[in-house]
Design a protein around this nucleic acid. Structure first.
Lengths: 149, 149
DNA sequence: GAGAGTATGTCAGGATGTTGACATGGCGCA
DNA sequence: TGCGCCATGTCAACATCCTGACATACTCTC
């Protein structure tokens, strides 16, 4: 018979959840004054780095479903932070891009998030940070690195 | 002016979110056949290790709000997996404990989750696992290690 | 002993996310 | 060419979770 999970304080999975929850809470609090939720910020950040992404690609990058990202896009588009092509250039995918206002809001939000991330890893050396990031990526890859259906 | 978040692929925060999302997805899929959600499993696992916990303490341990944990407890109690004291022995806190059925279900679930965690960290040595866990704990502590209000 | 401050349990409402489904548009293959 | 297959966009229904609020009970301080 397989053994169960042992002491939670010795579990990597529990520590992972703990850190992710703390980060999420800190980002929520930091982004609220800007009128952004975490998924909304993630959407903007992804579009800055890779303009023209479709809703489905954004959903995978932000770890939510297509449907959730659809709602996020509608909200951000109504606020004038991004524009969506009305017709597909290839397949059914509708390319999305940031507007000027979107870039401005994102700049503020990105500074807030960067500060939070710096605070999170301030006790680690640069080498340790890279190692941590690599280990986390390896964990994600080992689990299949899936996004919600 | 503060710099923003750089390349997401170089961000520890993004890697953290990615790994946590992969773990959550894997746990969801593994626990579904047992009729358990992740918060429900977390609740049972916490109670095994620390019987007599109150709803508020369970909520903090599972990284959800008191209200969410309240709903989880109602469901698990109705299924006969745990019992809640009807009167408080100290303060308003109502101690909760697993039933025999609860222990049986948890044993199955715990084996499933342990297998997922093993798969997640199989590419890391024991020393690397401990280091990763310590780094994650440090990150959580640096952010205040808060749970949702 | 009285008061503020804090922690807990609980209820109601609303925001958010997911599941399920369907239609449409490429792509590969016989 | 025709067919199956997959990806995308979108809608409706449902589940989940959080926000806000209130009552109760302990603790600490004066």
């Amino acid at each position: 018979m397989a053994q169960g999970v042992g002491d939670l304080n010795l579990s990597v999975g529990y520590a992972l959840k703990q850190a992710a929850a703390a980060l999420r809470t800190a980002m929520d609090a930091g982004l609220r004054p800007l009128g952004l939720t975490v998924p909304q910020y993630a959407c903007l950040e992804l579009l800055r780095q890779r303009p023209g992404l479709s809703a489905a690609e954004l959903a995978r990058g932000a770890f939510v479903t297509r449907q959730s990202m659809h709602a996020v896009l509608l909200g951000l588009e109504e606020r004038g932070l991004l524009t969506r092509a009305s017709t597909a250039t290839r397949g059914r995918a509708l390319p999305t891009e940031l507007t000027e206002a979107g870039h401005r809001v994102l700049a503020e939000a990105s500074a807030v998030v960067a500060e939070i991330e710096r605070r999170m890893i301030r006790s680690l050396s640069v080498a340790e940070q890279q190692r941590l990031r690599a280990d986390l990526a390896a964990c994600a890859a080992a689990l299949g690195d899936t996004t919600p259906r």
